[in-house]
Amino acid sequence: MNKEQITIIVADDHPMLLKGLHDELTGSGYTIIGQADNGIQALEIVLKLKPTIALLDIDMPVLNGFEVIKMARDKGSETKFIILSFHKESYYLVQAKTFQINGYLLKEDSFFEIERCINEVIAGNVYFSKSIDAQPIMQATEELKRLNLLTLSETKILKLIAQKISNQEIAESLSLSIRTIEKHRSNIIDKLGLKKENNVLTNWALMNRSTILSQ
């Protein structure tokens, strides 16, 4: 597939970044078929225009980049998604891996890096920015592996915890005793390798809510 055949939409709520990226891509021969400055607009454009690639910021109004990707894929979109963000913490990388995003770039990257990512994604590969240290990526992978250690019951309970539902309410909804729920919580803490501190599981679940609810 040559550049002219690659259709791209770009979504970012920073006008100058949006314009700069648009100008770089069009100047290099890519076909930009749409732009958006918020998540819901990005989702509508992806579903309507069916671009080859969507370059999305994470932090957008209405829907964030991850939410756009999940909703688009739930509706059968075959667009390849590349995140373009300032964030390189493992929390964001875990979500990128969870949603099986095709590419993850940093806004500090050169256009050469963006173009290399596009080429890799078109070739069917997953590409993470070379500016991201290997350690956070490895940490993100390990966190996902640990989530996969949970049983179906533990996963269900963790999802309820992530939705701020109390032990009492969880026990009632699953027709289990409080003691059984507490035992499940203890097992989850052990499997996730968390320190046994007050509210550690609740805090971890709320911080990783998007990843947990997508399981």
Rank of each mutant, 00 (worst) to 15 (best):
I40F: 00
T180F: 08
D57C: 10
R209P: 08
N198G: 09
D37N: 03
R116C: 09
Q41G: 00
V68A: 06
I33T: 01
A11E: 01
F111G: 13
A134K: 14
I101T: 11
K3M: 09
I118D: 01
E44D: 06
Q95P: 00
F128Y: 15
E4F: 11
I118L: 02
N102P: 07
E197I: 10
R146I: 03
R209Q: 12
T180K: 12
I9Q: 05
P136V: 12
I178W: 09
I9K: 04
K156I: 11
I132M: 12
L106Y: 06
N203V: 08
Y92L: 09
D12L: 01
T98L: 02
C117A: 06
V62L: 15
I157D: 09
A134L: 13
E142H: 12
K19S: 02
G20I: 00
C117T: 06
Y127G: 08
Y104T: 04
G76N: 06
L17P: 00
N38E: 00
K80E: 07
D74Q: 11
M16E: 05
I9D: 02
D133W: 11
A42E: 00
D12P: 02
L147Y: 04
L47K: 01
C117W: 04
G193P: 12
D57N: 12
K97H: 04
D12C: 03
M16H: 05
I9C: 06
T180G: 08
E143R: 12
L176C: 11
M1E: 11
N125E: 12
K196R: 13
I45G: 00
Q139Y: 14
N102V: 03
S90T: 10
A134V: 13
G29M: 03
L18M: 02
V62K: 15
L144A: 10
I212D: 08
E44F: 03
L194F: 09
V62N: 09
I33C: 01
L192P: 15
H87F: 15
I40K: 00
G34P: 03
I9L: 04
I165R: 15
L84S: 10
Y30K: 02
S214F: 13
S129H: 10
T202F: 11
I9P: 07
V94I: 07
L25R: 02
I165H: 14
L43A: 00
G20Q: 00
M71Q: 13
N199P: 03
T141E: 13
G76F: 06
D190H: 15
I114E: 00
N64P: 13
I189T: 14
Q95M: 07
I45V: 01
N208S: 03
M16P: 01
E44L: 01
N208E: 04
F99Y: 06
K50E: 08
K80D: 04
Y127R: 08
S85F: 07
K70E: 10
L174Q: 15
V62A: 11
I132N: 11
L49W: 05
L176P: 06
